[in-house]
Write a protein that binds this DNA or RNA. Structure first.
Lengths: 341, 341
DNA sequence: AGTATTGTTGACAGCGTTGTCATCTGTCAA
DNA sequence: TTGACAGATGACAACGCTGTCAACAATACT
């Protein structure tokens, strides 16, 4: 009942261990018949290559790393789940590395981790996917990279994007279609790349509806609930407050909702609130949040596929993949009060 | 700049590789002076033992596994974070394994995973930590185990508990102290062990306040938001509905809150709502949820320490560790309406 | 027919570490 | 002084696999 090794399979199949190795690694130049013989033997013995031996002998570690900054971000579990299932299914193992993006020694500590764990490739989530010095250092180390939602669609690295900008333009147009003329916006963390595109989408949306952009209706948040609450208050305290507020993520939108409640205003009766992400929170809050669903897990799957393809040496022609985010209308948005009966 | 190996260290220190190995593994019978010489050399070369070589040559894999059932549970990130940092700091690596506890082939698939990844030890979260057949199978495989929040405090495995029962009794007494006489309760998923203790605590609390227990005020949920909403409606539809509802976790409490909102009742004006966990949701919802804070990350740290100690062969006298959960009063609970002005 | 080319297979040497066993040193009792 | 013994160190064979290279078979081209 001891674990079967490559030797056992070779003996049972009547070939050399090297041939078994070839079959296991899907190498070319093995006769169909031989291949099948080996596969049957492997199956009968429930053979599973020893990862340690593989990485010790070979040049690859069969590890991919997932780097993320903020443990508490609600979407991380989804990303992790996508990366995990995809890499596992291709025989790779996942090494998880939380890190602090504000740490001045970040590049050094990640580099050292990459070397000591010897990962073949790395998947970066925002805001790490935007840190040029980090990317450069990792390139130099020779690790393959795949980026999730970087701000800048440079072609140097394989990246997965969502159409943040278009989706936000759509959300804005939707709000306008409900009669809102003064729409507040809460910007996300400035270092968190792709989230900046949401602001651009907001402006696009305003523009395409012929509404003039008003700088006073835009406040700077930092992706946290607390910052959303603060910005919400600042917007509602304006002389001519907005009738709708669009926040760059759901956490901040929830913060805005709290501000609205604290002012004893009704949602969406007095103020409509919209978010972005479709975090679990969005549907569990009252009233349920109108938001934009970003298929995080799918993005992670795509990014991992990108990475693995690259590790296999396949030179895909396309380095970028865009995944559509979609508007989800729930209860937190409604007609503009001034336009109602 | 290539990675230093044990050979390099041995040469620099002027000893054999075996001695370096002894020092690295803190083995006995090495002269102080020799030990120091080796340590200096290792430091100078930034030597880090190759994990693959270690596990290939030795009997241990330096991997601990984390098994969990439900990817979406909000506390998983915290658990993972605790396990990760603790095991990493002791030179162990983490292998994550999401699984489906309702899968009839669960035991088989986990066993095979344990063998193929060859983990030295495993940390189980609910409801996996309660599945006797699984525990038995893993015991037979010879893996060390540490359980997080199992229902049954058997002494066979090292486990970490919270005082769910006491904390819930306290919450119940708190609600009674606010004048509530009819307190509804939403039970958690029946397979999710420790959560059952919360129901016991609720009954304890009622008892210690001299309130009679009313079976009609108790509804069975399954830990999800949706089940909380459903139970909330069933409770509020009673002829003599409760003035406070205590749900076994925050997700269900949020569901109850939605039900209350849908009935156009005020929180806590008409109905008080309380939860358990102190998930992020609890403080981001309006009104912020009164709940019980369960220090998940700390539990994970303790469980991991347990496991690592066991792997090191230290036979601790105590196999159990209890961590205190604490009441967090926020805005969703208030005086009973009938008792007010 | 002979030669070059391509496809298929195996022998064997590592990869960096630990486990086993042998060797060497020094200490202590007889 | 000798022998016994524990402590300290090293030589060397694994561990299970991949990479390299050589050998051979089959096919295509002169």
């Amino acid at each position: 009942m001891a674990k079967a090794t490559i030797q056992d399979v070779a003996k049972l199949a009547g070939v050399s261990i090297k041939t078994v190795s070839r079959v296991t690694n899907r190498e070319a130049n093995v006769r169909q018949e031989t291949r099948r013989k080996v596969q049957r033997a492997a199956k009968r013995l429930d053979y599973q290559p020893n990862p340690s031996a593989r990485s010790l002998a070979g040049t690859r570690s069969y590890h991919v790393g997932l780097l993320f900054d903020n443990l508490s971000a609600s979407y991380l579990m989804n990303i992790q789940s996508g990366v995990l299932s995809t890499s596992r299914s291709e025989g790779y193992d996942l090494v998880i590395q939380p890190c602090d993006y504000s740490d001045p020694k970040l590049v050094a500590s990640i580099s050292s981790m990459v070397r000591s764990k010897s990962v073949d490739g790395l998947i970066l989530t925002p805001p790490l996917s935007d840190m040029k010095p980090l990317l450069k250092a990792l390139d130099k180390l020779g690790v393959c990279l795949a980026l999730i939602a970087p701000a800048d669609p440079s072609n140097r690295h394989r990246s997965v994007f969502t159409n943040d900008q278009d989706a936000c333009a759509e959300m804005t147009r939707y709000l306008v279609s409900m009669g809102h003329q003064r729409i507040g916006f809460v910007i996300g963390h400035p270092d968190h790349g792709a989230i900046g595109n949401r602001y651009l989408g907001y402006r696009d949306g305003l523009g395409s509806c012929g509404l003039k952009f008003d700088r006073r209706l835009v406040k700077q948040g930092d992706n946290t609930f607390e910052s959303g609450e603060k910005c919400g208050h600042r917007l509602l305290d304006l002389e001519d407050p907005p009738t709708a507020i669009f926040a760059s993520n759901d956490d901040m939108a929830a913060g805005v909702m709290r501000a609205v409640h604290e002012m004893e205003l009704a949602i969406p009766g007095d103020v409509s609130v919209a978010g972005f992400d479709d975090a679990p929170l969005a549907s569990q809050i009252w009233p349920a949040l109108t938001t934009i669903r970003q298929p995080m897990e799918e993005m992670a799957v795509r990014a991992t596929e990108f990475l693995l393809r690259q590790l296999r040496g396949e030179t895909g022609e396309n380095n970028r993949h865009t995944i559509a985010s979609t508007l989800v209308v729930r209860e937190s948005t409604g007609p503009c009060p001034r336009n109602r009966g």
